[in-house]
Amino acid sequence: MIPWFTDPQHWNGSDAIGLLIGQHLIYSAAALAIALLIGFPIGLYVGHTRRGVVIVAGTANALRSLPSLGLIVMLVILFGPVFKSDLAYLVPCLIVLVLLAVPPIMTNTYAGIAAVDPASVDAARGMGYSPLGVLLHVELPCALPLIFSGIRSAALQVISTATIAAYVSLGGLGRLIIDGLAQRDYYEMVAGAILVGLLTLAVDLAIALASRLALSRGLVR
């Protein structure tokens, strides 16, 4: 395995490891950002108002049961005539990654807000916080641990699934696995697998660190 990693050929050119990691991170970050823009406000709204709980839970469950590979190939074929260039592959991939990332962010945000001690919310309302003040100063800070864990599982799923992008001729670390398979180069496949594993581990650690820094010591015991 070590010779594969030390071979300079694998660090240069269009399949350079650094480039693949960069692509992988860009797909994932873009999908995560869009999913946050969608899932976070919905979760806040549902958690604060308790309206639409059934719809949110049902949607999240339905999205979970969709096979991501099937969805990507379907969208690639459907969008093929619509987009030119790589967009025909990129847009389907992003859509599917967003669909994967929205449920954990949405449900965890909702659950985090809903789990805030009702006594704290009552006290906040009673002392004269506006509804928005209650949300921003009490409910949101108290819900942060669960929101972070939602973002974490969304990020891990997105990075994991982004490997499939290579199958529809996009970049990312999946390239190594798919190309390795096509060329019966098992070393390349294993290298891809190891790199994806390391990448998820690194992102997992980064998010854990960020949440440790962001969370009040009153919430993490």
Binding site: S160, I177, Y186, V190, G192, A193, V196, T200, D204
Partner: peptide, 23 residues
């Protein structure tokens, strides 16, 4: 929990190494 974070495609590829199976 760490086991859960391993991407599935990666695990499918790595397991033959551990199990001695065909890909």
């Amino acid at each position: 929990g760490l086991l859960y974070t391993i991407p599935s495609l990666a695990l499918f590829v790595l397991l033959p190494l551990v199990l001695g199976t065909q890909i």
